[in-house]
Design a protein around this nucleic acid. Structure first.
Lengths: 204, 204
DNA sequence: CATTTATGTCAGCCATGTTGACTTTTTTCG
DNA sequence: CGAAAAAAGTCAACATGGCTGACATAAATG
C-alpha cells in the first residue's frame, strides 16, 4: 500500500445528490463497505504470493489455476477443467500448451474413451503446485491463528455462503471429491484401476 | 459452475513423487486447500455481480474500482488513487479519461495546489457507485445472515488478518477515514471548507 | 531561476479473456 | 452400418487492462 493518505478536502460536488454514509434508516439496508474493501485488498494480497513465483518463470495466474486444479484432480479431462475455470477452450488451450511443452503437465489419451485427454502433473508440475498451496496455506494459517480457535470453520462457512447458492453444492462436492481421491491415492494403490469415467453428469 | 463432475480415474502419474493429501505428519503444516479454493470461487462470484452491470455500459472492472474509491474519497488526488490501486499512471489514465468523458467523474484543479486534479463523482457516477456497493453488500449481508450473529465481526477480523501485516494499518486507516469524512459530509456542511491538503505523508 | 512534483500522453508490448469458424478423432445411437 | 454428437485442438481477430519508456506541461518549491 506504500502510502495511503487520501484526506479529501470534503467538498461535495455541486450536484451532490447522495449521502453515501448517512446512518442507515430503519428498514434500510446497511452498506457493508468495509467488508467490500477488505475482501478486495485481502484477495489481492492472496494472489500476489504466487504471482511473484510465477513471474520468475514466465507464467501468469492462468497457469497457476490450471496447475492447481490438475494437481487436485489428476487425470481430469479438459472439459472438466473448462467447467471449473469457466473460460473458453481457446483461452485454456494457450496456457495448457505452454504447461505441456515446458514439462509441467502430462496429457494422455483416455483408455476407455480415446477422444479424451486426461491431464496429469509431472513431478516438476506437482512440485510447483505444492509450492503454491504451501505459500497460500501459510497466509491462511497465519490469519486464522491471529483470529482464534474457531475461525477456520467460521471462515469456511463464510466463504461458502459468499458463493452463489446454486454453485455451492457443486463447489463443495468438488472439494470433497478431490480430498477423497487424494486420500485414496495416499493410503491405497500406488497403481490404480483403469480409468472409470463418471456416469452421471447432472446439468444443473 | 454449471456442471462439475471431475471423477478422475485416480491413476497416479508414473513419476508420482508427491502425496498431496497425506495426513499432515507431526509438525508438518496442514494445507488449507479447501479455503484456498473457496476464496477463489467466492471472490469470483463477488466480482461477477458488478461485472454484469459493467458489461451493459461498456466498462470493465478497472472502471468499477476507480468509481468505488472516488466515491469513498471525494476530492482525492490522482496520486492517492494510484497508491490505492497500485497500477501505473498510464493504466489509470485510460479508464479515468473514459469515466470523465462519459460524465461519471468530475476532475477539478485543486485550489491550494493547482497542479492537482481532485476527483469527484458526478451524480451519475455516484448512482452507479452506489449500485455496486448495494449489490455487493447484498451478497455479503446474505452470507453473514446465513452464518450467524457474530459473523460480521469475525469476517472483518479474518479479512484484515489475510492482508499483509504492513498494509493492515494503512488499509484500516483508509477505511476509517472514508467513513469519518462521509459522516462529516452527511451531518454537517453541504458546503465545505476550502481544500486543505494533508500535511504528513509517511512513506512507510 | 533551477528543480521537483503532479499530471497527462503517445507508442508499443504482454497476458488473458472473448467470438467465430473449422478439423480430426472417436464414440454413440438409430 | 452410417449419421450425429462429443472431445479436443487450431487459426484468426479482437478487447481489456496490466506494463515500460519517453516526453510534455504546469505549478510549486527552494
Amino acid at each position: 500500500m506504500a502510502d495511503i493518505n487520501v484526506s479529501a478536502p470534503s467538498r461535495p460536488a455541486k450536484g451532490d445528490s447522495s449521502a453515501p454514509a448517512r446512518a442507515p434508516a430503519a428498514g434500510e439496508a446497511e452498506p457493508l463497505i468495509d467488508l467490500i474493501e477488505l475482501f478486495f485488498f485481502a484477495y489481492r494480497n492472496f494472489v500476489s504470493d504466487p504471482d511473484e513465483i510465477l513471474q520468475g518463470i514466465g507464467f501468469g495466474r492462468a497457469h497457476h489455476r490450471v496447475l492447481h486444479f490438475v494437481s487436485r484432480h489428476p487425470g481430469m479431462r479438459v472439459t472438466d477443467l473448462l467447467d471449473i475455470l469457466r473460460i473458453t477452450k481457446q483461452s485454456l488451450g494457450r496456457v495448457l500448451r505452454e504447461l505441456v511443452d515446458q514439462g509441467f503437465i502430462d496429457s494422455r489419451a483416455g483408455s476407455s474413451d480415446r477422444r479424451q485427454r486426461l491431464l496429469y502433473l509431472t513431478p516438476k508440475g506437482e512440485a510447483l503446485a505444492q509450492e503454491f498451496v504451501s505459500i497460500q496455506s501459510h497466509r491462511l494459517r497465519r490469519a486464522l491463528a491471529e483470529c482464534g480457535p474457531d475461525m477456520r470453520e467460521s471462515a469456511r462457512r463464510f466463504l461458502v455462503a459468499m458463493i452463489d447458492p446454486e454453485d455451492r453444492g457443486p463447489v463443495e462436492k468438488l472439494i470433497a471429491r478431490a480430498d477423497q481421491q487424494a486420500e485414496a491415492r495416499a493410503s491405497g494403490a500406488v497403481k490404480a484401476p483403469a480409468d472409470k469415467r463418471a456416469t452421471a453428469r447432472p446439468t444443473g
